[in-house]
């Protein structure tokens, strides 16, 4: 059963007189207890997709359309996220679906103590008394591995390090044991040794609370570490999807392949790095055919003329490329 089902999601942004197509027809499903990643570079629409699911985009300037945007709650009711009024979304957001963001310091209120901010979740969503709520907050802080939680609860966000703040956000997001956790680049702002801690914590929380995870990242190493299935996005479209093992060991789309190749092998020293030519196209000036055609090493006349559809390879893998075979790489 799918916890989250997105069908043909489109998001446009209005900038002056023009429309920028940020997401162009994306299909994503997240199964129960499944860990799914969306990987892509900045501007590929991965964050916009997740914000659209949470209905956190301001409309306008954003315009959202989808054939389906369905979320299945813990009790089995199916919610149509496109039609939900805002007050019902509010309840859904903490209790059923929760989100952690890249930069924890911008999502904490600087004039409230950590404890007060955590208490709010329990007071508003579980109708607890303040004292009860504080006890639960401290319990949650212990669960996410914060040393000396009673003291930390009385501190303000500026007194905490980035890693601790991210732990607080994880505590906040998981305190109602939601069904789906969306993590938008949760470790990008953190140091490598702290990143290892936080990724471990997110995985542990997901397993303990049986949460599904939608992980948004630009780092293929994080994908390998965290996810079972992955969607690769480029310029607002999904270019390839499949299980992490298959995609990372045998990519079928030239973009995925190029991304993996740019990461040098750790075992051998290289003198030069494999590079992808040119830059990501500007969202207003995407190429006419395949969006990757201007940077692709295997591009043909067909690619330049006509946008390839997502080919279903039958084994659960979808690839947006006319060729999608390894023979291509050897040429």
């Amino acid at each position: 059963m799918n916890v989250l089902e997105i069908k043909n999601l489109k998001v446009l942004f209005r900038t002056g007189e023009h429309f920028v197509r940020a997401v162009e027809g994306v299909d994503i499903t997240v199964g129960e207890g499944e860990r799914v990643a969306i990987v892509g570079e900045s501007g590929c629409g991965k964050s916009v997709t997740s914000l659209a699911c949470m209905r956190l985009l301001n409309t306008p300037p954003a315009y959202i359309a989808a054939d389906a945007l369905r979320f299945t709650a813990k009790d089995g009711t199916v919610h149509d996220l496109m039609q939900k009024p805002e007050n019902e979304m509010l309840a859904l957001r903490a209790e059923e679906m929760a989100m952690i963001f890249q930069d924890p310091s911008t999502f904490l209120n600087p004039v409230m103590t950590i404890g007060e901010q955590l208490d709010e979740v329990f007071i508003y969503h579980m109708n607890m008394k303040p004292k009860q709520a504080r006890a639960r907050s401290i319990e949650m802080m212990k669960k996410v591995g914060i040393p000396d939680p009673a003291m930390r609860a009385q501190q303000y966000p500026h007194e905490l390090s980035g890693g601790l703040k991210q732990r607080i956000l994880i505590a906040m997001a998981t305190s109602c044991s939601p069904r789906l956790l969306i993590a938008d680049e949760p470790t990008t702002a953190l140091d490598v040794t702290i990143q290892a801690q936080i990724l471990g914590l997110i995985r542990e929380r997901c397993e303990k609370e049986r949460m599904s995870l939608l992980m948004i990242t630009h780092d293929l190493g994080v994908v390998r570490e965290m996810a079972e299935r992955v969607y690769v996005m480029y310029c607002g479209k999904i270019v390839e999807t499949g299980t992490v093992d298959e995609i990372l060991s045998a990519p079928k789309h030239p973009y995925t392949k190029a991304l993996i190749d740019t990461i040098p092998d750790m075992e051998e020293k290289v003198d030069r790095f494999v590079q992808i030519p040119h830059n990501v196209p500007h969202p207003m000036h995407k190429p006419e055919g395949c969006y990757f055609s201007n940077r692709c090493a295997y591009c043909t006349a067909l690619c330049r003329k006509k946008q390839p559809p997502l080919f279903d390879r039958g084994d659960g893998r979808l690839v947006r490329c006319y060729y999608q075979t390894e023979e291509l790489w050897e040429k």
């Binding site: 702290i194 290892a196 190493g221 994080v222 390998r224 060991s249 990461i263 750790m266």
Partner: peptide, 24 residues
Amino acid sequence: EALMSAILEVNPRSDRERIILTGE
């Protein structure tokens, strides 16, 4: 050693032992 074991590899060769540092 800890820094090196924190590198996330895309296709790890073997199951390396990972040292996860506690605290900050």
